[in-house]
Structures are given as C-alpha cells and as structure tokens.
Nucleic acid binder design. Structure first.
Lengths: 349, 349
DNA sequence: TTCCAAAATGTCACCGGTGTCAATAGCGAA
DNA sequence: TTCGCTATTGACACCGGTGACATTTTGGAA
C-alpha cells in the first residue's frame, strides 16, 4: 500500500513546463517566455520563475520544442573528408562552441561520389529538421548541395578555400597563401627540383594549393616542372604511390610538397623504402598540420590549418546566422607554415 | 491571385501522417501502425498505405515520435578516450550499424576527471532522452556512471576489457590475451630485457594489458623487471617521455611494449632521438592498431583491436537491447597480433 | 481621480505523432 | 441465418512545448 504511493511519488521524475507554471503560479506561456529569454517578462516574474526552474531542476524537452518550432536542436556535420584527423579536429571545434548550449552535434557522413548524394543529405535535413548544417570540404564544394539545402530553408555554414564562389556563410581558408609559404620555404632552402603531389581534382583545395604553390615558386624565380607533379587522392596510400612515381624519375626531386599530411606521410614511407633519408636526401612538406605531422620522425614541416578553431567559428557563425543575429557572414583564416625537421637545405655535394 | 494559390499549393512541403491518412482513407492511427510495422494491420491495407507513403514521400517526424514515445531517436556516444583514432573508428562502426535506420549518432565527449562528470552525462540523458548510450573505455569503466544511467532507465552498451564486473550489455575485448601474444612474440624473437609503458591507472585496460603481458612473459619463462615499467597517459607525449626514462637505464631494454599505439609512436620518436634504429637496436610493439601504426616507418607491430567492428556490434546490440529483442547481451572480441616491421630478433652481437 | 496606451500575462489551438480503449468487420460454428 | 470471438480499425486525449491573439495590469498624462 505505502509502496504504491511511494512509486507514484517518484514516478515520471521529469519536471515539465506545467509543473513550473503551477508552482510559480503563472501560465506555461510565461514560463516559455522565460526559457526563451523573451524581453516581455517583468523582471520580478522572471526571477521568481527562474528560481522555481532551478529548484525543480527543470530541463525543457528539446523534442517538444522542436515539434512546436518545426526545427530541431541538432547541428549536423555533413562530411566526406578522407582524413580522420581533419574530421576529429573539426568535431572538437564544433563541440567547443556547442558546449553549454542546447544544441547537439549529429554526424552525417556521406559519399560525394554516390549519385544520390544530395538526395541523401536532403532527406536527412527534411526529416530531422536540423537547426543548421556544417559543411567542411569537400562537401562544401558541391554547389548543387548548397542550393538544395538553401531551397529546403535549412541554415548552413560552409568551410572552404577561397576559390568558392558564394562568399556567404563561409569559413574561408587561404590555402593558396599557405601553399605559397611552403614553396618559398623550399626555395629558400635552395631546392630547385621540387615535386608536388596534389589531391583529387574534385576537391577545390587541390587546385588552390597547387596554384598557391606555383605562385610561391614563381616569386622565387622557379617553375613547377609538370613532370614532377603527381596526382593523389588525399590518402596515405596514394601519397606513397605518387612519391614512388616521382622518385623514379632519372633526376629525382630534392623536395616534395604534398597536398595534405596524409599523403606526405605516404611520402615519408616511400622515401624511406627508396633508401632516402629525411631531410638529408629529400625534404617533405605537408598540409593541414594534423596530429600525425608532429608524431612522425623527423617532425613534419607542414602548413597549419587551425581546423579546430575553424570548427568552433563555423558553429558560432551557424548559431548566429540561424538566429538572424549576424550580418557579416564570413570569416577568413590564414594558414601558417610550421617548420619542423622534414625540410633542410639542399645538399650541394 | 494565381500566385497566391500557387504558393498555397507548394507551401509546407512536409507531408505528415494526416496527409497519408486522408489520401489512403484510413485513420492516422492505422498509418502509425504501418510505420511501426505493427502486425495487426491487414495485408491489403498495409500495402495500400505503403503505396501512398511512397508516392507522397512521407517521412515520419522523429521529433513528434520522440515526444509521444518519451524517447528520442538519438544514439549518444559518450567518450573521453584520448586517442582520436580510437574515437573515429568507433564512430565509423556505429555509423555503419545506424545507416538505413531512423537513428542518429550524437557526440557527447566528457571528462571523467571532472567532479560533476556523471551529472553532466545524466543531464544530457534526461534532457534528450536518447534511445540509448554507447560507452567505450574509459567511460565504460565508471561504475557510478553505469548505475546512474541505469537508474534513469536509459539503455546502454559498454565496451570494455574483460575485467569489468557486470557482463551485461557489454562488448568485451580480451586485452590480456592480446598483450600476452605481444609478450610471446617478443620472447620468441629472443628479447630478454623488455620494457613496458602502461596507460593511466584509472583505465581498466591499463591493468588488463599489463597483466596479460606479464603472463605472456611468464609462459616464456620471463618476468617483467619492475625497473623497466614506466607509467604513461595513453598519449603521444607521455609515451615519448616514458621511453626516454626507460632508455636511460644503464642496461637499456631491447624491446618495449607500449599500452597503446599513441604511446608507442612516442617511443619511436624517443628511440630515434636516442640514436637507436628500429627494429635493429630496439623493437617496439603497440596496442590498438590505429591507422598510425601502418603509417609509420617502419610499420609498427601492434595488437589489433577491431574497433570499427566493435562499434558496429555495440550499436546493433544497443538497438536490440532497447527493443527488447536480444537475450544474450554480450559479445567478445579477441585481439590479434599484427606483425609489421618494428620488431626483430634481438641482436646477438 | 480618470483614462489610455503600453507592458505583462493568459487562453487555446496546434505541432505530428502514439497509447488506450471502444467500435466495427470478418469468419467459422451452431 | 445468427451468434460469438477475434482480427482490424478508429476516436480521442495526450506528449511538452510555442504561436497568435485576447485579456488584464500598470504607469503616467490629463
């Protein structure tokens, strides 16, 4: 008998807006106003309600709010980046910004090579009505996706290199400038025969990085020998294979600039297997400064992209944009060259 | 005039259960039954409704369902693992299993060293009412967390090494057995002075791995010299520092078994900086087989944990458990030794 | 003191599903 | 053909919030 009343007392557990309204002796609508920080609530009332909310440990139900609002409290990260390091760092940045907000990060990997790629993302967006989407490269570079998302009236922020067309809702990285720095660094070290391994042609960054690299070389009075350019896929294996090809040339390059760290890591292995020492026999430069760059031996000289910060900025921008709070809708990040130990002066022997 | 009617026609866009009910000439409850695959619907009715659903492209609203059900369609991954590789692989496995279901993966990083660690996770669970939680190490090893989650009536699956107490809802890895294999491998190569770098003592796996390693040595007639045991923190830097300490001994070890790949990577660097060659001068073995193991040169011999598969299994188990479909509630994964090039016979010169 | 616009709060339907339980339909036995 | 029981289906309240609009307060001018 007493047991049943105990159970009733502890049942449910979840405090709702109705409980708050009853205890605070106001209507649920007023409580709702307080939750949503409406300015049309008398200060005294607001404080009284807040006190009750705190006492009862009330947590507004995101599902109920989403239903009423027609929009959920989920931030979707739509990605297809082959580099796990990139993805993790981006996640971290986003999570930094989402901490102590009501928003949750939902992962939505996808495959841009699939024919129904846009449909899949759109389906997710329509069904789950995310508060907004974050699109890092290369997803950010699919104009048809951005168009479809915009048509579905979903807010989004893209992260991309400067070559992207529409500058709105964009976190920009000046990949060309970063690559140019890499080129000048190698030129200053005396290298003349410099190879380049670029990423997949479907990535904008591939072209940006190559363009910047070539212009950096040009500033130093050098040109990129087409024979010393190899195509990779932003993956470790592709970097290794491309390096093997470059090293097979009769007069091999004394330095290689890879389009990302993953491929540069492959270059390390290929160089070692060819019996070359790094950096004595060959200098290697990567791009991204993912954790692996600092874990290799010797440490990899690379162009640093502040990925985590970019993720953080993207999430903040998204929240602002979705709340209609921000006017300036793009930010720019300049990559920096991180010189470690994989680059050295060209030997003159 | 015509414009306004056009707008009305295209307005909303979202098809709801009411639309389906109207078009199919049934009640929304019957449509609901079809969505939920209730067996109490006449075959003919079911097909007619399914046809309408397909034609109108109806997608049930997860938020509305969650509200009515008192449970969302989110699967929370609660993690504090310092190794990004581990986390990404786990995510991938879970996403594999969640593909083509209605469930979404939500990331919930946390910090077990924070005093309100359990409260934070609980708060998330209570507010967002996830369908279930997945707890990889070391979060899985906090009994107070599991208890709190269970008390909140949230389903969960833990991933842990065999030393965990409660065998229910568990994906088990036999870390001791894996470590034992590593020990036997090194013993067979003739190593006698073998060092060990273990992880943080707050991780169960730390003890499991050490225990297994010692028993593997014992099987080979060897013992682990306490002087050659160093403490790390499962991080790269800690592995590097611990290795430096081990190498400082008057008679340095000829092989080192690190508690995870991150620390083993640190060992690579420390060994190199000490002027040692791998594996000629020193053999190194890691644990996890994260991608970095195969990207280093020479390739790292390590104990492989099928992390992605474990994630997949965890998600499947969780869905089954939450649906009350599964009786046997734990699975076991046996790690395997992956021999690459960081281990070699002890030089006898 | 009275009156009125502005400020504050409340009412009630609705968001899109599901649970409970009632109502109807269908089918074999009597 | 009628009855009784089971298989299907439906009616309606409710999950916990928010929007639109109505109502009540409030404060200061007249």
């Amino acid at each position: 008998m007493s047991a049943s009343s105990d159970q009733r007392a502890s049942r449910g557990g979840n405090v709702t807006i109705n409980d708050i309204a009853r205890v605070a002796k106001v209507s649920k609508k007023t409580v709702s106003r307080v939750i949503n920080e409406s300015p049309f609530v008398k200060e005294k009332t607001r404080e009284a309600i807040k006190k009750v909310i705190a006492e009862l440990g009330f947590l507004p139900d995101p599902q109920a709010r989403a239903l009423a609002l027609g929009k959920s409290f989920l931030i979707g990260l739509v990605y297809d980046n082959p580099s796990p390091q990139y993805v993790v760092n981006m996640q971290r940045g986003i999570l930094d910004a989402l901490e102590s907000t009501d928003f949750q990060l939902v992962l939505r990997p996808c495959d841009r090579s699939q024919p129904d790629f846009v449909q899949q993302v759109l389906r997710f967006a329509q069904q789950h009505k995310p508060f907004g989407l974050i699109l890092p490269p290369s997803v950010s570079e699919a104009p048809e996706l951005a168009a479809a998302i915009a048509a579905a009236e979903i807010d989004y922020v893209r992260i991309a290199s400067v070559s992207i067309d529409d500058p709105d809702h964009l976190i920009l990285t000046d990949d060309a400038e970063g690559s140019s720095k890499a080129a000048r660094h190698l030129a200053e070290l005396g290298h003349r025969r410099i190879g380049h391994i670029h990423g997949p042609v479907t990535f904008r960054s591939t072209h940006e990085r190559r363009r910047g690299f070539e212009s950096g070389l040009a500033e130093s009075g050098l040109t990129l020998d087409p024979e010393l350019v190899a195509e990779g896929g932003y993956t470790f294996a592709s970097g290794q294979a491309a390096t093997e090809a470059l090293l097979a040339h009769s007069e091999r390059p004394t330095a290689i600039f890879a389009g990302n760290d993953e491929m540069a890591t492959g270059a390390y292995v290929a160089a070692r297997e060819a019996g070359l020492r790094i950096p004595e026999d060959i200098s290697i430069v990567g791009f991204d400064d993912t954790p692996i760059a600092g874990r290799l031996w010797p440490g990899m000289t690379t162009v640093r992209l502040p990925i985590r910060e970019m993720g953080r900025a993207a999430a903040r921008l998204l929240l602002d944009v979705a709340n209609g709070a921000r006017r300036e809708t793009h930010l720019r990040f300049a990559p920096e060259l991180v010189v470690r130990a994989s680059t050295a002066s060209r030997r003159t022997d």
